Computed example of a mutant assay.
Amino acid sequence: MSEREEWSEMRAEALTHPEAQEAYEATRIRFELGREVRERREALGMTQAQLAQAAGLQQPAIARFEAGGTMPTLPLLERLAAALGLRLQVGFEPLDRAS
């Protein structure tokens, strides 16, 4: 058995616990939000420092956010969206359609 298979099995076992599922979901959300911001920033040719200035933040805050290190508030997401030339849209989708 490879390390990958062992890890997959360990992860699957861990995610059978509700607390682990909640933590995993919170981490997934932070990671996806950070990735979306980074991809948009890069598409615009902005540096983290430029985004930080446009959003009224410090560059380390952008770096932490893009790495999935913080769970942002809605006002922070609105500031980042505006700095990236976007409109924040929040919604819900059925779990069977979620990725």
Rank of each mutant, 00 (worst) to 15 (best):
M1L: 14
E3R: 13
R4M: 14
E6F: 14
W7P: 01
W7I: 14
S8F: 14
S8P: 00
E9C: 09
E9D: 14
R11E: 09
A12C: 00
E13V: 10
L15W: 11
L15R: 00
L15E: 11
T16E: 15
H17Q: 14
P18V: 03
E19P: 06
A20F: 08
E22K: 10
Y24S: 04
T27I: 05
R28G: 00
R28Q: 11
I29Q: 08
F31C: 03
F31Q: 08
G34V: 03
R35I: 03
E36V: 06
R38E: 00
R40N: 07
L44I: 08
L44A: 12
L44Q: 15
L44H: 11
A49D: 14
A49N: 04
A54S: 05
A54C: 01
G56A: 07
L57R: 04
P60F: 05
A61G: 00
A61Y: 02
A61T: 01
I62Y: 01
I62C: 01
I62L: 07
A63V: 10
A63M: 03
R64S: 07
R64P: 03
E66I: 06
E66F: 06
A67H: 05
A67G: 09
A67P: 08
G69T: 07
G69D: 00
T70C: 00
M71F: 09
T73Q: 11
P75W: 12
P75V: 09
P75T: 11
L80K: 05
A82V: 10
L86Y: 10
L86A: 14
L86S: 10
Q89K: 14
V90R: 02
G91N: 09
E93C: 09
E93M: 12
D96W: 12
D96R: 15
D96C: 10
